[in-house]
Computed example of a mutant assay.
Amino acid sequence: MAITVDTKMIALLGKPLRQSFSPRMQNEAYEAAGLDYHYFPVEVENDHLGDVINGLKYMNFVGFAVTKPNKIEVMQYLDEIDELAEKMGSCNTIVNNNGKLKGYNTDGEGFVRSLLSETDCKLEDSVFFCFGAGGAGRAICSTLAFRGAKKIYIVDKFKESSKSLVEDINTKFAPVAELVSFENVEEINKKVSLSNVVINASGIGMYPHLDEVPVSKESLNSSQICFDATYNPLKTKFLVEAESIGCKILNGIGMVINQGVIQYSLWTGLPEPIETFTKSIEKIVSEK
């Protein structure tokens, strides 16, 4: 589809982006619907994020997506924030309405939809352990608390990030979050062993950290569900090790599909094209 002065643009802001399936997935959905929209990646980190966003406001952009490491930083540049995203303290989706920017977060709901559709997990009966308290971890854990999770253990190498997330969840959603120290490996292993679902939202396992894992497989057991927000590679070392001992594993494919269709609807005002997105992802994965 040719890009013209009438094409409605959407940018993905973050770094690194080479591994992202979102541009192709979104563009195939627009083409299937006959929409003159185009989605493309722009690698940018916090240092120039404000400059880029200021430019997008005055061009033919209906909005933009935000990924690591910009999901928290982006909030200071927005005119309005959806209530759930504001409580989370993280945005991944921004709608541009005549130069006024409104932020949303579709990550958490994308994760929960994927988890509930692909496993027999019952949120109200489940204990979760989450590695990573950045943008993705914030969205996932906040949504879990909002949706009634029994307990959530949270750890991050940046203590202030995990401490802030635990406090925000306990005061804004439900008193179900507990801080675990990154330095206390014994405590991490203990809490992981007590959890029904182990989540890696830290970025460990994606390029260039392909050989790293957030926790040793000795701390896992075969009854657990292990989720990695990464989807390229499709199986991080963490998931490979978890699968080897019998754990049910999920990568970030389901999450990216579900959060992506919500984004599509926010930008276009049209129903969520779940089948189109799923077929697109399946095709991309088959080519890997």
Rank of each mutant, 00 (worst) to 15 (best):
E187N: 12
Y231R: 04
E275Y: 08
A242C: 10
N96V: 02
L115G: 04
I81S: 05
V198N: 00
T106Y: 07
E212P: 09
E287M: 15
P208C: 06
S195Q: 12
T4Q: 14
T106N: 01
Q259R: 11
D120S: 15
D228Q: 15
N27E: 01
V166P: 03
S223E: 10
I257E: 00
L35G: 02
C141A: 13
L239Q: 04
K8M: 08
E167Q: 13
L84Q: 13
S286M: 13
A229D: 00
V215N: 06
S193R: 13
I257R: 04
I188T: 04
L49I: 02
F173V: 04
A174I: 11
E73Q: 09
Y58E: 11
F173T: 02
S126P: 03
S244N: 09
S195F: 12
P41I: 07
E80C: 12
L210W: 13
M25F: 11
N60T: 07
V127N: 01
K172C: 05
V95P: 01
T278K: 14
A133F: 14
L210I: 12
N27C: 02
G110Y: 08
F129K: 06
P233V: 09
K279N: 14
F277W: 09
F182L: 04
V240T: 09
L56Y: 08
I284Y: 03
I94N: 03
G99K: 07
K190H: 15
D51M: 14
L56Q: 01
E183G: 00
T268F: 10
K57H: 08
D156F: 13
R113M: 12
V198Q: 00
N105M: 02
P271F: 14
V42Q: 07
L194H: 13
F277M: 02
S117I: 06
L144K: 03
A29T: 05
A65I: 10
K159Q: 07
Y30L: 08
I72W: 05
G55Y: 10
V261H: 03
L239S: 03
K157A: 05
N196R: 11
I94R: 05
G137A: 06
N70C: 15
G205S: 03
S22H: 11
S142W: 04
Y231W: 15
K15N: 06
A85S: 08
S265R: 12
N98L: 06
E160C: 11
